[in-house]
Amino acid sequence: MNRREALKGLGLSLGYVIATPTLLGMLQSCSTKAEKWTPLFHSENQAYVLERLVDLILPKTKDTPGALDVHVPKFIDLYVHEALTDEDKDIYRLGFGAVMSELGILNQAIDPEQPITLKDEDYDAILSKYLRISKAQRIAYIEAQDIVFMTLSRIRDQSVWAYRTSKEIGTNVLVYDPVPGQQKGCISVEEATGGRAWSL
Rank of each mutant, 00 (worst) to 15 (best):
P65D: 04
T193Y: 02
Q183T: 15
F96T: 10
S101P: 00
V179T: 10
K135T: 11
Y130L: 03
A109Y: 05
A197M: 12
L68P: 05
D120I: 06
H81M: 05
V70S: 08
T85M: 06
L118N: 00
G11H: 00
S188G: 13
H42Q: 04
Y92D: 12
P115M: 02
D88N: 15
P178I: 06
I116S: 04
G25Q: 05
Y130M: 01
L152N: 06
R93F: 10
F41D: 04
L84N: 12
P59S: 11
A140Q: 08
V148P: 00
Y141V: 06
Q182R: 13
C30I: 01
E44W: 06
I110M: 09
P65R: 03
E143I: 14
I126D: 02
E5I: 11
K62D: 12
P39N: 04
Q158P: 00
E44V: 09
G195L: 02
L174H: 13
D88Y: 14
A67N: 04
L68Q: 07
A192S: 07
H42V: 05
D120P: 05
P115F: 02
M100Y: 08
Y48F: 15
G195W: 07
M150D: 09
E113C: 04
I147P: 06
E5D: 12
G185D: 11
L94C: 08
G104P: 03
W37F: 15
P21K: 03
W37L: 05
K62R: 11
Q114G: 01
R164C: 10
M150Q: 12
K184E: 13
L24K: 14
D55W: 01
H81C: 11
Y79T: 15
R93W: 08
V54L: 06
S159E: 03
E35N: 06
M26A: 06
W161N: 14
V148C: 04
V72L: 03
A125F: 01
D157M: 09
T117P: 00
Y163R: 05
K135V: 13
V54T: 11
N172R: 14
G104I: 05
E121I: 11
L200N: 13
S43A: 10
A6I: 15
Y48V: 03
L27D: 03
G170Y: 03
V99T: 03
D124T: 14
V148M: 00
L94V: 11
V175Q: 07
T85E: 04
T38L: 10
V17G: 00
A140M: 04
I105E: 04
G194E: 03
G97F: 00
T151Q: 11
L58V: 15
A140T: 07
Q145C: 05
G104Y: 06
I91F: 09
R164M: 12
I142Q: 08
G25W: 04
A6N: 13
R52A: 12
Y48D: 03
I126F: 07
I116L: 09
D124R: 15
G25T: 09
S199K: 06
N107L: 09
K167Y: 14
N45T: 14
R196W: 06
T85Y: 05
A144N: 07
R138F: 00
D111C: 10
R156I: 02
V80Q: 00
A67E: 02
L7E: 04
Y92G: 01
G170R: 11
S29D: 06
A125L: 08
V17H: 08
S153L: 13
V49A: 06
P112Q: 05
A197W: 11
D55A: 14
G185T: 14
L40H: 13
G194N: 02
L106H: 08
P59H: 10
I18D: 05
